[in-house]
Design a protein around this nucleic acid. Structure first.
Length: 382
DNA sequence: ATAGGGTTAG
């Protein structure tokens, strides 16, 4: 459009910014922000809302807050975007504080506000606070919808209260969705409850028979329990039904280019002199600060050496090494992954943030880990 | 035109 001399309107930018957010293209998002500043016209509310959302989804929560604070007019979307931004970035205290501020400013929260808060509580392990919130929201005239129940079930299950979670699902005033059963299945995986997983999956397959993630989760439940025959059965079932899983991949943006990595990586990159040098430096340094590969996360029936090779080749590590090589010392490393990070990569990232003194911001399917000097913003709660 | 719910083998 710009090449054709067409120019652009606020509507143009309002539609492009969410795309930057979705793929974590912070560099591109900042360029658009630059266009807004350059135009000297004040951005309107939807435009600034989508600018905030872009920053939040790129893990740049401080920039998001800056835009929010400078907005002269805010609507409910602005407040919700800020709260949800804090929530997905693991800053639940800030989310709660903003909610209080909203209330004292007499802004009426809506269903979306509570989805943001509840899912934040769930991901930070604030179970009792979340439960209270679930009741409190009804005082604000918000009736719990399926989405709110999904948060509640996830919150209970994730903190190990599987029975309580199941009881909620069974007493739901509406038909449970795939995400409700899926969340419960995930909790069974976290706590190694094979028999409940089997009950749950029966219901889940009625609703989402073609969702590859459900098969993988079930397979992982069995693998964790060492039930390799069952693992095989699940994989054969997938094969028979023609269900394929997208491979895990990670990417980073450097200037205008997006660099993508899959597990194992390209041999060109892994054999390059720079890769080998950084890799061996990191191996020594991370070992010194106590990092030991945890091969428990490799849910395949293979030997220990292969397992170590496998975890160390996970796509987010390759992306991290590439970023360390190709960005200036001290610059934050920003990685996005299409799946959740595994436990071992999580501890590796902590160690790397410490030995390189770099901030590492890792976004998985839809939330963030901020690694700094050996610790993570998620406080290791999954 | 902007904000919201679970998860994932290579």
């Amino acid at each position: 459009m710009q090449g054709e001399g067409m120019g652009f309107s606020w509507v143009t930018l309002t539609t492009v910014l969410p795309v930057c957010g979705q793929v974590t293209a912070l560099h591109s998002g900042k360029e658009i922000h630059g266009q807004i500043v350059k135009s000297k016209k004040r951005g309107d509310v939807p435009l600034l809302n989508s600018l905030m959302d872009m920053y939040a989804k790129c893990g740049a929560i401080d920039y998001c807050r800056k835009v929010f604070d400078r907005m002269q007019n805010k609507d409910i979307t602005s407040w919700n975007t800020m709260i949800s931004g804090y929530s997905i970035n693991g800053q639940i205290e800030e989310a709660m504080a903003l909610f209080d501020e909203m209330i004292s400013n007499r802004i009426r929260p809506d269903g979306i506000t509570f989805v943001a808060l509840l899912s934040g509580c769930s991901h930070s392990g604030l179970t009792s606070k979340g439960k209270r919130l679930f009741h409190v929201m009804q005082n604000y005239g918000v009736k719990p919808s399926l989405e709110h129940y999904a948060c509640l079930v996830d919150m209970l299950g994730r903190s190990g209260k599987l029975d309580e979670a199941l009881a909620v699902v069974e007493s739901l005033p509406m038909k449970p969705s795939g995400s409700i059963w899926g969340s419960l299945l995930n909790s069974c995986r976290l706590y190694g409850n094979v028999s409940l997983a089997e009950t749950v999956v029966e219901r889940l397959f009625e609703i989402e028979p073609n969702n590859p993630g459900n098969y993988v989760m079930l397979s992982n439940v069995y693998a964790n329990a060492g039930m390799w025959e069952e693992v095989k059965r699940v994989r054969e079932m997938m094969g028979m039904r023609g269900i394929k899983k997208d491979a895990g991949c990670s990417w980073i943006q450097i200037k205008h280019r997006i660099h993508t990595f899959v597990a194992g990586g390209s041999t060109d990159f892994r054999n390059s002199a720079e890769f080998c040098r950084i890799w061996s430096e990191l191996s020594d340094a991370t070992k010194k600060v106590g990092y030991v590969p945890d091969t428990e996360v490799v849910l395949h029936d293979i030997n220990a050496e292969m397992k170590t090779m496998w975890v160390c080749g996970h796509s987010e590590r390759l992306a991290a090494v590439y970023a360390l090589i190709n960005t200036g010392d001290g610059m934050p490393v920003r990685i996005t992954k299409n799946l959740r990070v595994c436990v071992d990569c999580h501890s590796w990232m902590k160690a790397v943030s410490r030995v390189t003194r770099r901030l590492i911001v890792l976004r998985d399917t839809n939330r963030f880990h901020h690694f700094e000097n050996g610790t993570c913003s998620c406080k290791d709660y999954w």
